[in-house]
Each structure stands twice: as structure tokens, then as C-alpha cells.
Design a protein around this nucleic acid. Structure first.
Lengths: 338, 338
DNA sequence: GTGAAAGCGCTAACAA
DNA sequence: TTGTTAGCGCTTTCAC
């Protein structure tokens, strides 16, 4: 292993000077800088990040805490995580995945190890216990999602209001008046306080009222089968519905196939609009689902950006609320005239 | 921050003794051990992993190198990664994701930083350049996948032979004689040397010959659309086919919907069997696809296990080849009698 | 069985 | 502008 001491020796300077050029922390004359840089390339020097971490008390590692017990790590989570990892790498940070329980015990344990400089919290609950824990430890963190009371918390999230407005506006604009929302399953204790479900549903009730359409809302778990069952229920009990909005990604695929199986033509008889879906997922259906694209890559990036700015003492990133944007597939159209 | 020095002081012993009980590296009398443990809990001591790493030259961090440019990080990759992260955590390791180019330049850079004790390589090519790089650096590593010449390389992989045998056997046993394989896209330079594609196709040609069925093989990219196009081609050019095997996960969904769109009833007219698919993905189709389940969780776990054993100087894990197992969905059935 | 002390490779005062 | 040096918190050898 080539150390800074070796480089210093070869360049005929002190180890401190080497450190100064490496970190750009003090002015160094071009001549000595050149000598040092030459020595570094000749020796193939690479600075040891562990020693640096110990001395500087900054590891340049951040963690993404993912409550894997309560939320499966699917396509959307993969989008968040990989974009966060990319963003971190571009800023010379490493990203580790912490699959932790939602109660915060493991989180305390891990934070105490001193391995990471900060934490990005995924799948945030409205009253997330992890927030208090992190605050108590003084560990810097950023949220992808939001708690209810976020006084000064660094966060980025989906703009559910705008998303739902555009979604409903799209359907209303096509002429639909009998909408139905297949929402997230708030009866499941794991999701009772899950931001995306709560906020989407609330926004929908508000927007629907504004448009003067009645608000029928079903709960539905995020599985294809649940979506199919919900579709059957729509056909059975709300047969005059002309358009459904589906919150859950996988459920939406089931809703589409379930409606077809029950003899409904999409979008001839009924339109289907997925809220919060990865375009990758939308493409799995035939026809491709019209959907509001989850801004996973954007939020993964912004989340780490927000955290890293804190760590570097830079201007804090103002909270970003990113709306999901409408992607036209083949599952929405004007309602049949009757 | 509570350090070992604090604990030692409070317990009235030396810092070395504290280290001995923490690491179980030297005998300590029950009495002093008790004193120390008491002091630790009273003070809420947590050993700093960075200092430990520097002193012991073992960081207890491992990396998963994922060639994100060539392979999208989808549901299967997420399965591999999260199970690997879990396995690592259970053995007191951290897992970082390294989205790196496939050429190995970035890998050299990252390995040189000295952050990780070892590397798990994902999406291994038959002649993967990363292997040589890692060997040259002396960094321990394990493969999820295999190169062609693996003399003593630690690896775990899918048992493609057994998987294909069971798949073909299943269809043959149902009475199918006109099979067709929709294979991975070997004309794409990124996948020309991609183990799963090459090995699956080779195994298929061998097994099909054994069964005496003709071997029609299409190339197909891993997208729903490509799958749909392949399905159209099957209907157009090989209309007497009674069963198709599809290698690619997302293509398989497209094949199923494409066949339906072209008037084929599944499984009445034609059976569809997905090779190498996550059950989560299979459930997205209606009916659920009959598929050979990719052993992602098993391999993610085994890959880190293999690596960690090397790191701990334990008995090496013998190479594991795990077959994908048949999961019955609703897309295979005996061929129509004619 | 326990302690003293020398590092691990780097950063960051402080001094020159 | 450059050098000296005292740590960062822990592991580990060697002596007692």
C-alpha cells in the first residue's frame, strides 16, 4: 500500500503538504504541487478513505434507511435507491442500504456505530418515530417523504396535490363525471399513517369536491390480485363508473386486467389512470397504462443532494415537492356517449 | 461520544482489556468482564467502526458492483441486492451499492480507496474484465454468475442446465412437441457474452435435441414491446407452435399479452413458460405466468456468504448452482388435440 | 489475566 | 508557503 508518507518522501516534501494539495485546503506553489502530483501518479497513490474518515470525522458514507419489513423493495424503491446511489457517487459519497425495522431500534444501533455521516429516510410515516431518534442523536438526515409536522426538517416529496389535480383534470377534461378511486389500504396498520396513501386520498376528496364529482373510494392492497378484486367490485357495484384512478402501482395492473376479464373494454367502456407508477411498470400492461409517473429518480437524487448539502455546510436545499407527471398510455379516453 | 477509554476508566481497567472482551480475543476473568460490561451499558458505549477499521485493517463493508449502464436495475436486481444486504447485516457487515461501468476503470478506482473488504460482482460476463482487475488488486471477491474459465473463483449462479431441463420436461410431459424459445438478445453487444443468455440458450438446444424436438429460437430484448413483437412473429411464422419458453422476464409479459392480442388463447391454444422470472413479476400477468422462479434471494444470500467466508478465513463455500424452480401459474396446459 | 504502548494513515492546528 | 506534531478511537504485540 502506498501511503501519503511515501508520496511525501518521494516528492521531497512533508506529509502535511501532500495533504494540502489533496484536499485543496491550503495554498501550495505550482512547483511543489507538480512534484507531489508526479510522485502520486508514479507511485499509484490512492488516499485511504478509512484513515481520512477517522482523522476528519467524516466518512463520506451515507445510509438509506429502508423499512423493509413494512414495505417491499420493488421497482419504485429500486429507482429511488439507484438514483440516490448515483447522486452520492457523483459527489464522492458512498451509499449503503440499511434494511431496518420501522420502530427505530436498529436505526439507533446503526447510527451509533459512527459509520455514516448522514441518513436518508425512505417511506416516511406521518408520525415517523425514526425522525425523533435521528434528531436525538444529532445525526444529519433528510426525508424522502414528510411527517405531518415538519418544522425545518430537510425533505423532498411527491407533490400529491398537484399530481391529483392533474390526474382528475385529465379525466374530467375527457368528459368523465363518474370517477372512482382505488386507494391505498389504510386499514392495514402498516399504512395507516403512510404519507402517499393518506395525502393522495385527501387530495382526491378535495379535488373531486371542487369538480363536483362524487367521491367513491375503495381501499386496496398493492397486489395484482387485490386490484383484480377491486375491479370486480367496481363492475358489480358501481357499473356506471366511467373512469378509475388507482393509487397502487401493482394494484393498477390488476385493475386493468380485472376490468377486461369482467368484460369491460379499456378505454372504450372505462378509463384507467394510475397515480404514482414507474413508467417501467406502466409498460408492462397492454395497452400501456396511462399514468402519473412517480418522480423516483428525481427524488432519490434530491434526497441525497439535500443531505449532502447539510453535511458540507452548504446552503440548504429548500424542500422540493415534485409532482408526478402525466404519461399518456392507452387506457384513458372520453367516456362512451350514452 | 463514549470511547473505550471512558469505559476502561469507569471499569477501572485498561483500554486493552476492554478490547479483549469486546472482541473475545483473550481470556478475561468473569469478574472484570462483568465490570466492563456494566460500564459499557451504563455509558451507552458503542464501538466506533471507523477506528476499528483503521486499526484492524478490516472495514466490515462489502460492495456489490452492479454494471448499471448495461443492465437496468429491475425487480430481479432488487431481489439480489436486498437479500445480499440482509445477509451482510446479519453477519455484521454493511453493503454498499457501486453502480459502475463494465470496463473496470471505476472499479479499480473504488477498490483502491480501501473502503471495502471485498466485492460481490453482479451480472457477470463470460469473459468479465472486472475479474482480472480484482485479482490483480488482491481484493477478495465473489461472483454471482460465472465466467467461462473459473479456476477456483468463488461463485454462485443459477443452474441453467437443470432449470431448462425441468422447463422442457414440464412442457414435454404435457404433450407439447412444437416448442419455441424466445431467448435473450445476443445480437446486442452488451449481452453477447452474458452468461444467463448464452447458457440458457445452449442448454435449451441440448435438451431439445435430447427430447427430439426441433429448436426454433428467436432473439428478443427484455421489454414488453419486444415480447409482443416476438409473439406476433410466432403467430405469423410459426403458427403450429404449441408452447413458447421465454428467457427474459419483461419480454415474457409481452409475449403473453401479444399472443392474446393475436387471438391466441393461453393456455388453450398455446402455452407460455417464463424461464428466470421473479414470482412478483409473474403475478403481474393475468393469468399468473407459469415460470421458473429466479433464485434471487438465495443467490444474493449465498454470494455474500461466500465472500464473507473468505474474509473471515473460514472454510470456503463450495460453488453453488441453484436451479430455478417451476411455479405453476395459469399459462401452461396440454396442447389442444388436433 | 491484565496493562503499556506502538501504531493504523490521515487531518489540522500551530509553528516556522 | 511548508513542516512538525498531536491526535482520531481502536487493535495488538509484548511485557509483567
Amino acid at each position: 500500500m502506498v501511503t501519503m508518507r511515501d508520496v511525501a518522501q518521494r516528492a521531497g516534501v512533508s506529509i502535511a503538504t501532500v495533504s494540502f494539495v489533496l484536499n485543496n485546503t491550503k495554498p501550495v506553489t505550482p512547483a511543489t504541487r507538480a512534484k507531489i502530483e508526479l510522485a502520486m501518479t508514479e507511485l499509484g497513490f490512492r488516499r485511504n478513505v478509512v484513515a481520512r474518515a477517522l482523522a476528519s470525522r467524516r466518512t463520506h458514507i451515507i445510509a438509506m434507511a429502508y423499512p423493509a419489513l413494512d414495505h417491499r423493495f420493488g421497482l419504485s424503491a429500486a429507482e429511488f435507491f439507484t438514483s440516490a446511489a448515483d447522486a452520492a457517487r457523483k459527489q464522492d459519497y458512498h451509499l449503503v442500504l440499511w434494511p431496518v425495522g420501522n420502530d427505530g431500534a436498529e436505526l439507533t444501533e446503526l447510527v451509533g456505530q459512527g459509520l455514516v455521516d448522514g441518513v436518508v429516510l425512505m417511506e416516511v410515516q406521518l408520525d415517523d418515530p425514526r425522525v425523533g431518534i435521528l434528531q436525538a442523536t444529532g445525526m444529519p438526515f433528510a426525508l424522502i417523504g414528510r411527517t405531518t409536522s415538519l418544522d425545518g426538517l430537510q425533505h423532498v416529496d411527491i407533490d400529491f396535490e398537484t399530481t391529483v389535480e392533474e390526474a382528475v383534470g385529465h379525466l374530467y377534461g375527457l368528459g368523465h363525471r363518474r370517477l372512482l378511486m382505488i386507494a391505498g389500504d389504510l386499514s392495514d396498520p402498516r399504512f395507516r399513517s403512510y404519507g402517499p396513501y393518506v395525502r393522495t386520498e385527501a387530495a382526491y376528496r378535495r379535488v373531486a369536491a371542487e369538480y363536483g364529482v362524487e367521491t367513491v373510494v375503495f381501499d386496496c392492497a398493492d397486489t395484482t390480485r387485490s386490484g383484480q378484486e377491486a375491479a370486480a367490485k367496481v363492475v358489480r357495484e358501481y357499473s356506471d363508473t366511467t373512469a378509475v384512478l388507482v393509487v397502487n402501482e401493482y394494484a393498477a395492473l390488476g385493475v386493468a386486467s380485472g376490468l377486461k376479464k369482467n368484460g369491460r373494454d379499456i378505454p372504450g367502456d372505462i378509463s384507467v389512470l394510475a397515480l404514482l407508477m414507474a413508467t417501467e411498470t406502466a409498460r408492462l400492461a397492454d395497452p400501456e397504462l396511462t399514468h402519473m409517473r412517480t418522480p423516483g429518480p428525481e427524488l432519490g437524487h434530491l434526497g441525497t443532494e439535500s443531505l449532502i448539502r447539510q453535511l458540507e455546510g452548504a446552503e440548504p436545499l429548500p424542500p422540493h415537492l415534485v409532482p408526478a407527471k402525466l404519461h399518456h398510455g392507452g387506457t384513458t379516453a372520453p367516456p362512451r356517449h350514452d
